[in-house]
Design a protein around this nucleic acid. Sequence first.
DNA 1: CTGAAAGCGCTTACAG
DNA 2: CTGAAAGCGCTTACAG
Lengths: 342, 342
Amino acid sequence: MTASPRRARRSSGRITLADVAQAAGVSPITVSRALREERSVDPVLVQRVREAADALGYVPDPAARALASQRSTQVLVLVPMLSNTLFVDLLESVHRVLFPAGFQPLIGVTHYDSAEEELLLRTYLPHRPAGLLVTGFDRSETARQLIARSGVPCVHLMETSEAPGVHCVGFSQVDAGAAITGHLLARGRRRIAFCAAQLDPRTLQRAEGYRRALREAGLYDPQLELLSPESSSISLGARLFEEMLQRMPGIDAIFFCNDDIAQGGLLAANRLQVPVPQRIAVAGFNDLAGSDQMVPPLTTVRTPRGEVGQAGASMLLGLMRGTPAPASCIQLGYELVVRGST
Amino acid sequence: MTASPRRARRSSGRITLADVAQAAGVSPITVSRALREERSVDPVLVQRVREAADALGYVPDPAARALASQRSTQVLVLVPMLSNTLFVDLLESVHRVLFPAGFQPLIGVTHYDSAEEELLLRTYLPHRPAGLLVTGFDRSETARQLIARSGVPCVHLMETSEAPGVHCVGFSQVDAGAAITGHLLARGRRRIAFCAAQLDPRTLQRAEGYRRALREAGLYDPQLELLSPESSSISLGARLFEEMLQRMPGIDAIFFCNDDIAQGGLLAANRLQVPVPQRIAVAGFNDLAGSDQMVPPLTTVRTPRGEVGQAGASMLLGLMRGTPAPASCIQLGYELVVRGST
DNA sequence: CTGAAAGCGCTTACAG
DNA sequence: CTGAAAGCGCTTACAG
């Protein structure tokens, strides 16, 4: 007696592939293929499909597409911190490559914390991102496995590695650290201190470069190093400057591992009326916004984060499309920017 | 003769709801409900389902969920620019509220460009975000309609409006601009200049506050305003300082619309050896990183972006869950931070 | 080059 | 409180 058809209708009112197919007089498959340019479709049909799609204002449903194809068009991008403007520049260039290519960056911030990175991976990997962009190589074994087992193409940014099968774009943080230290040496400095914050892998690589340069000059002294695990900031830089100067009054230069702490150091020098560079030369790293406006302007290393983002995203694009470029590891350069502070 | 069953198998190897259901000895629906706590389910079954899910390592497929429910768990967050650390702070607090609640922020950067904002909305709205967080009210009519027609709950940040049905969390940029100008007046300044960049709505609201305060004091002079459409930056601040001083040598104070240009102005003063605050008082806006370290330290207005993000995300959470809080518009305060530069 | 069928892994809408 | 059926809107896998 209950003859009412028990149909669970729940149309979302959305224009679907089927609507376009009907309007164009072809099958849904053909619409799908025509719109994605996946397989050769009769140009005449392609044209008809496109017109129908435009006329109806058809927009593919990303969820349906992701479910059917087991792949979304989002690209997970993991960076340590946005308060370091280095990563803002990096994200900007990544976006400029990925977005026009039909992929959307999904930004995750790890706060230099491997547990947070793991949580982000656990949360986002089930979304089946089309690709993955991560910062450096320092992560938990679990995170590493999550990435590997996901099968999602991954490119590492900011550091390089020669390990086989690894895709990366970066530059030598060690060499760059050695180069700026070498510059200070060339300027005649002999008691060159190193102040660092955060102590992430790249910072420690710069420390290594610093040590290498000083050892080669026979001037290395562990007492000249001040390493703080705190987050990098202008105010921390000011504190480190004062502390270093108090602890080792004989220093004639400081290499700060990042421009923000270097700027803080310079401001502390201004406040304490320590003549820079006469009494102490100050150098930074990364050439961040404002460094050229300091008094005196800050000598630093210009790092190619824009290019790293651009090249890394392009490499990932190749991987995602199945047409990877030959190189799996790109080593970019850096540039010494000598200004008034040294 | 072709007896082979024509089945299009394409299991992804993934653990599904059905697997959990089988293991727990219940129907898939019950698993779905137990895990989402959507409807009351027998506690005994819930327990069994949870154990089965844990044992199998079940992770729901976001794409399938989004397709079936017409709603993803992502929240689109649109900000103008990440190089303004104000928005980094905002995003940070938004993440802290949303992520633990099971929603993932999807960050979009508009670069203060309404066409870019439209493109982001067109790209991301089809993903059916669970919610939307946007900056201010200034957008194209098209963007406004895209948002309204999408039916996605939306909260506006950083500005407030009394329009009915609008959800927002912000503070009065006008009042804050007037307050800092009032402070300069109270310090006895009479020729108070205003330097601004970007000229986005919030900057112009601060300008309004500046004008209001000076008009009330009978000291308003349009010649004292220097408005640049360029992006805000430390180096632009330095240029604006020099230009302003050259154009109007009689000024005795400058209110910069944002701390980055104020910092640049302060550095220019250092370089040109213009005594601050003796010859010229300098004030900024937002209390960004580094302002407290300037020489002299910068007087500014501390704006509650962290609280805006926190309250805005919480309000959105209520909207998304269908349990909106009573207030649809929250007006927060700001705080004058008087330091050595005034 | 084109298509009919099945399936991706969930949730909605009904029923009981 | 629980479930069988249908459906969300695509793409894959086969065939021809």
